[in-house]
Simulated scan of single mutants.
Amino acid sequence: MLENTPSRTAEVVALIRALENTYYGETSLLKDRYAARFLSDFYMAIFNRLSILPEFTSFFVNAASLGLFDFITLRHAFMDNYVRRFAHKVPVALLGAGYDSRALRLADDIKHGVWEFDFPATQRRKKFYLRNERITGEAPHYIEADFMKESLTEIFERSGMQKTATLVLWEGVSMYVSEAVVRDTLTACRDYFGAGTLVVFDYWHSKMTDPVKNLAVQVMPFIMDIVYNERFTYGATPQEMRAVAMECGAKKFESLNGQQIMKKLTLTSRLPLASASLAVVEF
């Protein structure tokens, strides 16, 4: 990520959520009517051109993105379900929140507050776009943080979050850091929030058994670097990620690919990419 520049991939994710809501309407997984508010003129122009096309266009958008469109919406919906299940009992922390809208969409489910942590440039831009938004219930706590310059424990302490079981969502971040940062993040959540804490995050697969898919996995980091200046730097197989989580003190670990997420959501109409998964770590 370029310093002092809002995240471009966070905006792409907002674009995908906005298109998913437009294409599917009442059957949308996310029903995210806020996502389009975070789009710059460039991405708003793309949204305006694609959103006027019929629902079946989503198939071609997904094919053009090699399944990323569907994986991002499935990932987001899966994490939404965790908010609905646990946010009435524990606080919610969003690490690298980007242009997340859960504090608005799921306000009725959040009973113990939501803390959004992100780089200053992205978070300030988000707050600017929401400056006139009327928020029902408790407003989110915005915490500016540079995760590369400050330890996560220091960031948590500065945020004023209590040391209690917490639902931590870490979305679209792990592939841009190192294995050491992944370990430090899991360990910091374990040590600061304690027993009962859940960390839900997605991760990129570093290699795959299928040679064609494996080639795509090897090329993708370079594509991300060229297009967004945000290159993938870390990936792991499900077995490797399980080992990392267990070594960090996890009591339970679950990894789900796109097809498995669809089963959890009782859904069969999406075609997500196969080179990423979601991890659920319980301490």
Results as ranks from 00 to 15, higher is better:
F42H: 10
K111C: 08
I72Y: 11
R37K: 15
L2F: 09
F78N: 06
R270H: 07
F193A: 06
A279F: 00
I155A: 12
P140C: 07
A64C: 15
A35S: 12
T153G: 13
T266K: 10
P120D: 10
D109K: 05
F38L: 03
G67Q: 09
L30M: 08
F147D: 06
G25A: 06
A195M: 12
I223C: 13
A250Y: 03
K111A: 10
H88S: 15
G196W: 02
T22F: 00
A97C: 14
G137K: 01
T136L: 09
M44D: 13
F283Y: 15
D109S: 15
T268R: 12
T166P: 04
M1L: 03
G196A: 09
M208K: 09
T268A: 13
F119P: 01
F253G: 05
R125Y: 15
E26R: 09
K126Y: 03
Y176I: 03
V219W: 09
S255M: 09
F193R: 01
V168A: 03
F147C: 08
P91N: 06
M241Y: 05
I16R: 00
N4D: 08
A216K: 10
S174N: 11
Y99W: 12
E26L: 08
L256D: 05
M1S: 02
A63N: 13
K89Y: 11
K252R: 10
W115E: 04
L271S: 11
E171M: 07
M246G: 06
E247G: 14
Y24G: 02
L198T: 02
M175E: 07
V177G: 05
A64Q: 14
V199T: 14
M241L: 14
R231Y: 05
H88E: 14
T153N: 10
P221S: 13
A77E: 12
P140I: 01
N21V: 00
L215T: 12
T197A: 07
L2Y: 06
V168W: 01
V83T: 07
R8H: 04
A14R: 00
L167R: 00
P211S: 11
G235A: 10
T122G: 03
L30E: 01
I72F: 14
Y82A: 07
Y192F: 15
V114G: 01
A77K: 10
L66S: 13
A107V: 08
L278F: 06
F147M: 11
I143Q: 09
D146V: 04
R17H: 11
Y203V: 05
P140L: 04
S275D: 15
N48S: 13
Y176F: 12
Y176M: 08
T22A: 15
